[in-house]
Design a protein around this nucleic acid. Structure first.
Length: 293
DNA sequence: AAGAATTCCAACCGCTATAAT
DNA sequence: CATTATAGCGGTTGGAATTCT
């Protein structure tokens, strides 16, 4: 038996709320509270609405101290920082921004902030973006000389990751956790991330999806392994099937890692790393970043 | 000026976690 | 413990408003 519906779908109003309905809901809640039962509330308040709809209307619009309008730079910074750390957990992010709702922040992120961060190309529309992405992928493949479909997921995952990570870092470097061992050599490892970690069932596709969806969240280890005459990469249980040389790996990762005065074997808090954007890719933000790790 | 394309955001949907029985 | 009801969450959508061509 499936779950019972919370209301009679045929007899509830949907769509935008009228000022009268707003007033009715507001008056009722201010007088009697929600009673901890949203499902029963619309009937008591005389509204032909689903309890869920009432709850949403109250939380996102009617309740006191809701802040509407422009987000401040400080709010932007907090959202970026938390998104980089915990991903799209909007209710937690909203809890750090008094007066803002999760829905508001989610909308703001999806429509403005994400573009602002990635927006080194302000006139980018969907068509241009897709074209540029395609051009980039073609160029990328030509340069690397690896056959199509051999490692597309990993390559694209890195594209997505680096693009967002670099932008995020520009905004809020203190919240992003980055570690690297001294160089891309056998046995070395690059670790990105913060709190989340991939599960044992992750595969390349889910990893791609994870990186795509969660931006910089997560802890990911890219292991460099020696394979025959070149280097390969492994990610969790998955091993790249191809061999790459040092330069190819660098290009595949899509950043140039230059380490300065780094003691061997481990990253230390006194070391710094310069990441430069791939000049091939016009979509990515340009510049040079310094990290302490 | 007008139609097309894009942006924006309120509201909905479906899922999961938790509470109640 | 199993089942059912509810709250809450995040992803998605519809359509109004705005911008572009």
């Amino acid at each position: 038996m499936g779950r019972a519906p919370c209301c009679d779908k045929a007899n509830v109003k949907k769509g935008p709320w009228s000022p009268e309905e707003d007033a009715q809901l507001k008056d009722f809640i201010e007088k009697y509270g929600t009673g901890g039962n949203w499902i029963a509330l619309p009937q008591k308040a005389g509204l032909k609405r689903c309890g869920k709809s009432c709850r949403l209307r109250w939380l996102n619009y009617l309740r006191p101290n809701i802040k509407h309008g422009e987000f401040t730079e400080e709010e932007d910074r907090i959202i970026c920082s938390l998104y980089a750390t915990i991903g799209s957990r909007w209710s937690i992010i909203a809890s750090q921004l008094p007066g803002r709702t999760d829905n508001d922040i989610k909308n703001y992120w999806n429509t403005k902030l994400k573009k602002k961060l990635l927006g080194s190309t302000p006139n980018l529309n969907k068509r241009n973006h897709n074209q540029q992405q395609l051009q980039y992928q073609q160029l990328h493949q030509q340069q690397l000389h690896f056959p199509p479909l051999q490692l597309p997921q990993l390559s694209r995952a890195f594209d997505q990751f680096n693009s967002l990570a670099t932008s995020t870092l520009l905004q809020c470097p203190s919240y992003f956790h980055y570690e690297a061992k001294p160089s891309l050599e056998e046995g070395n490892m690059i670790m990105f991330g913060s709190e989340k970690s991939c599960t044992s069932s992750d595969n390349m596709a889910s990893l791609e999806s994870y990186l795509y969806n969660s931006g910089t969240g997560g802890t990911h280890n890219l292991n460099i392994v020696k394979e025959g005459g070149g280097y390969g990469m492994s990610w969790g249980d998955h091993q790249a099937p191809l061999e790459y040389n040092y330069e190819e790996i660098k290009k595949l990762v899509n950043c140039n890692y230059t380490l300065c005065n780094t003691p061997s074997n481990s990253a230390t808090p006194t070391s710094s790393c310069i990441i430069q954007d791939d000049p091939v890719d016009g979509l990515k933000p340009h510049g040079e970043l310094m990290y302490q790790f």
